[in-house]
Structures are given as C-alpha cells and as structure tokens.
Design a protein around this nucleic acid. Structure first.
Lengths: 224, 224
DNA sequence: CCGGGCTCGATGATATACGATTTCGTACAT
DNA sequence: ATGTACGAAATCGTATATCATCGAGCCCGG
C-alpha cells in the first residue's frame, strides 16, 4: 500500500493551480497583477509547463485574462464586469436556490438561520469583509444542495469572480446589509413553507440584483 | 508590415483546439473516443505540448473528460448528463433570450421567422439533423444579442454539449418538432409585442424543458 | 485451473532548451 | 523637447528529452 500520510499525489499543475488561486483569493495577487510564468515556476520549484497549464485553467474560469505572447494577469473587474457577473449570478444562483430548496433539511435551514443571526450580530460594529464571508456561507447552504452540478459550478464561478474585488460590495453600501439579512429571513420562510419554486427563484434573484442596484446607485448618485 | 493575407498567426494550441473541437462536433470523435496526445500531435505535426493545452481547454468546457495519468476522452453524455445540460440550458438560454429581446431589430425577427419557416417546410420529409441545426440557428438569432457576454457564453457551452449527442433529440421524438415550431412563433410574437420580460423568459425556458420532457417520456414510457 | 504479483509497453507528466515575440529603454534626429 | 527608431532584455511558445505511471499480459505458485 502507498504511504498513508503521503498518500496524496497532487500533480504539479494542481499544486500550481491551488497556489495561484489561493493568492488571488486572499488578495496577494490583486487584479491587474502580472502572472509571470518563470517567476511562479521558481517559487514553486517546478518548471513552467505545469504553471502554464494552471494559468490556462484559471483563464477558463475567468479569474485571469491572457494575451498571446504577452502573458497573463489577474482579471480586472471594472464596473461593467461587476454588473455582468452579478447579473449572471442572480440568474444561476436564483435557479440553484429554487432547485435546492426541496432537498434542504430542517437542519440545513437552522444552520442558515444561525449564520444569518451572526450576520445580524455584526451589524453593530460592521465589518464588510466578515459580513461578505458570512453572506457567502449563508447562500452556500441554500444552493449547495442543488441537484444540478453544472449550475452549482456556475454559482461557484460567479462567487469566485466577485472575490476578485478587493473591497466587498458592502464596503460601498453598508446600509444595504440590514435589508440583506431581512431578505435572507424571507428566503428561509419561503423555503420552510414550501413556496412555489418560481417565487423562491425570483426572490433569490431579486435579492442579488437589489444589492447590485444599491451598489450602482452609490456610485452614480446622479439621477433617480 | 506583415503579410496582409497571411496576417493570421493562430498559435499551435489554437490550431489543435479547433482541430479537435471540429472533429468532436462533426462526429469523427464520438463520445468515449480516447484522445491520445502523441497521436493527435503527429496528425497536426506539432509537439504534444500545444495539444495538451487544447485538451485542457476542451475539458474546461466540458467537451472532454480527463483523468490524471490516464488521459482524455470525449465526454460521454448519458441520460443524466443530458437532462442536466438541458436544465441548465433552459435557465441560461431563457434568461439570455429575455435579455436580448429589447435589442432585436425587426430585421432580426424576420430572419428568425424565415428560419422557422424553413423548419416548418422540412416537417414533411423530416430530417432530424437538419432540423436541429436550424433549431440552433433560430435560437441563436434570439439570444446572440444578449448584452451579457457571460450568459451568451454559457448558452454556447450548453449547445456545445448537446452536439455531442450523435443523434439529435428530435430523432427520438419527431412528433415534438411540430409543437416546437409553434412555440417558436409564440416566442416571436412575445418579442414583437414587447411582452413582459419574465413572461418571455419563462416561455423560452418552458420551450426547452418541454422538449426534454418529451425525450424522457419517449425513453421511459412507463408511467405518466 | 485459477489467482496474484511482476514485467513491459504505451502514454502521460514534467524538465530543459531554444527560437520567436513583445516590451521597454535609450539615443538620435527633427 | 518630443517623437521615432533601434536594440537589448524579458517573457512567451514550442520542440525535444526524460521520468513516472498505468494497464495488460505473462509467469509462477497454489
């Protein structure tokens, strides 16, 4: 038998992938950061080939952009990108939430409610980063049980893109936090009373677009 | 200045990608076909490195599956996969269609109607493959103008997966064709009269799930 | 006669090497 | 002073080479 401890044999490309993805997530590689193959290869003590593959994978997921003969950089999320991503996420996450609802146990709902309670508790001394993390946790409980793995994957990708934003949305619109947690409770109620799936889907979708609109309004206070 | 005619300099990986993707689409590589790096590299007269990259790209798109240290093969679409893909497609294509509607010109609608007319014309001597192609053309007119490129991309991927099926859905349920073209006309009407986007979205979504249900019913004639 | 372990061939994974392309600095001319 | 052209350094793209791993068949023992 193979060594139980060293059992894992993650390929180099896999290691490279995790390495880069992690640094993008925790913000060490900020949007626009240039990913130089040789440099990363050295850091990991591997050759450029696995690194290259890892980067192409990240490209496919939309976390980095790539230009022929020029190289890769962490994807920039300008406002247009943000809107598009949120739009897409509202659709797929709405669908995922609705599809997952019948598979949620009362235990899951209790867990979600606990997370939401924690979010409420933080409203006093508001911490956008922590709030956003809890927000993801909350929604994860709701959509992870979606029986369609493609859709779950799409939701993950959407959230991954959003993580690129150094500042969470709630940094710009802290006032939105209160409405958000209320809508969370509303979603839970809908799930508990086995509401019409379409109603739940649209509620979840609206929940996201509302956050997006709040953000946009805060950036363009012009006319309304 | 560079040669204007030979201006294009598609990288080898790009060539490899197109090469493989094309063969998957036209059915020369059928699901389950093993994609051997060295073999394809020889065919294209390149080394294995670009081929490898191309295959990983196809993997990210879901056209091929890949196993570490074993290799790649064209993705198998068993029934479960088919259902999941159609479900996902119904959601994203529905959204794309609704979002694209306001951007359609009367010219676009005329073109779509012409395609649908052609579909109707083929109903007599029914050709499932041709019908499916026209079906894609029709829907392409409706969703390509969707302003959200992510969503358009998701729709493309969904259709790409479906193309893996050697037999089109309509091979199994030719009777569905008639209902399908009627629903097409219904969709066009909704667009023309600027119907509520949600109504259009749900109609487009239903259009697809109905086809899927017809397929499932034909395969499991058991209970209904 | 069957089953388990071992060896070998095929193939994938990674490293190294080299040529191609881009980018950026610098010097020169206007 | 500014713009342009040239050139060097950095980086990418791909080929070739080597190592690792998997799967299949063979050999041997029960």
């Amino acid at each position: 038998m193979a060594q139980p401890l060293t059992a894992k044999a993650p390929s180099k490309s896999e290691r490279a992938y995790r390495h880069i993805a992690q640094r993008i997530n925790d913000g060490r590689y900020t949007p626009g950061y240039r990913l130089v193959l040789g440099q990363i290869a050295q850091e990991l003590d591997v050759s450029v080939v696995p690194v290259r593959e890892a980067i192409r994978r990240l490209e496919a997921e939309g976390l980095v952009t790539f230009e022929h003969n020029v190289g890769a950089q962490v994807a920039l999320v300008h406002e247009g990108e943000y809107v598009i991503t949120m739009q897409t996420l509202s659709i797929v996450e709405g669908a995922a939430t609705a599809m997952a609802a019948p598979h949620l146990t009362s235990d899951d709902i209790a867990r979600a409610r606990a997370i939401n309670a924690e979010m409420i508790a933080t409203l006093d001394h508001f911490d956008p980063v922590r709030f956003t993390q809890l927000n993801l946790d909350f929604h994860s409980v709701l959509f992870e049980h979606c029986p369609n793995p493609h859709i779950v994957d799409l939701v993950h990708r959407g959230w991954g893109r959003l993580k690129l934003l150094r500042e969470s949305t709630f940094s710009f619109v802290p006032d939105r936090a209160k409405g958000s947690v209320e809508e969370h409770e509303h979603l839970l109620r809908l799930i508990e009373q086995h509401a019409d799936p379409l109603e739940l889907e649209l509620a979840a979708r609206r929940h996201r677009t509302t956050t997006m609109d709040a953000y946009l309004a805060s950036r363009h206070p012009s006319n309304d």
